[in-house]
Structures are given as structure tokens and as C-alpha cells.
């Protein structure tokens, strides 16, 4: 395809872009889990593994939302306590979502794995930038009458970077 042909093809597409009309899925998958009473969502690709019943080893000089380290297959992983991050309360957890990160080893503590839900795109909405309470979330989904925040792993990691700087 020449650039002229590409330009022509793009001009023939609806406004949202070249292939969105044809290939954009009607639904999106989300991994739903709970920490205490609160529910959160993550893109399934953000999670590499779920492990359970590991001891959390506390660490000095870390922000309160870092509950410590777990030993996952012999490798230390930073454990985030999301309850502290969102509600400033500790929530001991027995399950851990090992995050799929290229440059670090980290996990979110988790009380219960709920489901992987296929959510219609119409049920996914962005947070407004002024929504300070949900600054660690990228969007929200409506599922069975509940609004569930979708966590932004990148923003949470940046918060840690800033707090340790």
C-alpha cells in the first residue's frame, strides 16, 4: 500500500480511526478482585500470577501502603496494600496478585478473586482528572449495579517512586 492509498483508505474510514470500526471489540475483559469490602479491576494482562498463603516480611523506610516483601518462587516482590492507598487503613491479605512488570517485581494484596468479567464498552467510563480520590485509577466500569475502579498500575508505581525520591 502506498502512502496515497493509505491516505485514501483513512479518508474512507469513520472519524474514530482506520481500523476501529472493524476490529474494536464490543466488550473488554477485566479482572475483578476485592481488598476488604472494596472491589477493584485490572486488565487481565496486568497480572502474571496469583499466589496465596505467603508471609509478608515488613521492610523499613517504606511508605505505609508498602506492607513488605513476599517470597514468590525465591524472588522478593514488593507488596502494595491498596486499602492503605485508598482508605488509609491496613488490610492484611492472604492472596497476592503478581503484577506483570518488565522492570520490577511487585504484587497487590488481595482478599478475594471475584471473576474475569466481559464488560460492554458502554459500561466503561473515564474518570475526570479532577477526581482526586480516584487518582490511582484509569477508568471505572459498571458491573451488576456497582461502579468498580480500574487501577492504573503505572500511576501507583509512580506514586511509590515519588514517595521514595
Amino acid at each position: 500500500m502506498t502512502s496515497d492509498e493509505l491516505t485514501k483508505a483513512l479518508e474512507d474510514q469513520p472519524e474514530e480511526g482506520f481500523d476501529k470500526g472493524e476490529t474494536r471489540a464490543e466488550t473488554e475483559g477485566f479482572f475483578i478482585f476485592s481488598v476488604g469490602e472494596s472491589r477493584y479491576a485490572l486488565p487481565p494482562a496486568a497480572i502474571r500470577e496469583i499466589v496465596a498463603d505467603l508471609e509478608v516480611f515488613p521492610l523499613p523506610a517504606c511508605p505505609p501502603y508498602v506492607s513488605g516483601l513476599i517470597n514468590c518462587h525465591g524472588k522478593p516482590h514488593t507488596v502494595f496494600d491498596l486499602k492503605v492507598l485508598f482508605e488509609n487503613e491496613r488490610q492484611p491479605t492472604s492472596k497476592f496478585l503478581i503484577l506483570n512488570l518488565e522492570d520490577d517485581d511487585a504484587a497487590f494484596g488481595c482478599t478475594e478473586v471475584i471473576e474475569i468479567a466481559e464488560v460492554p464498552r458502554s459500561a466503561v467510563s473515564a474518570f475526570s482528572e479532577s477526581d482526586a480520590e480516584n487518582r490511582f485509577c484509569s477508568e471505572t466500569i459498571s458491573l451488576e449495579g456497582r461502579r468498580i475502579p480500574v487501577l492504573s498500575v503505572g500511576v501507583i508505581r509512580r506514586q511509590l517512586e515519588n514517595d521514595l525520591a
Binding site: 521492610l59 523506610a61 517504606c62 514488593t78 522492570d103 520490577d104 511487585a106 511509590l160 521514595l164
Partner: peptide
Amino acid sequence: PRGLRARL
């Protein structure tokens, strides 16, 4: 873990 290494 890399994210904590410098601080510790």
C-alpha cells in the same frame, strides 16, 4: 525489588 532498591 528495583522500585525499593535505592531507598533501602
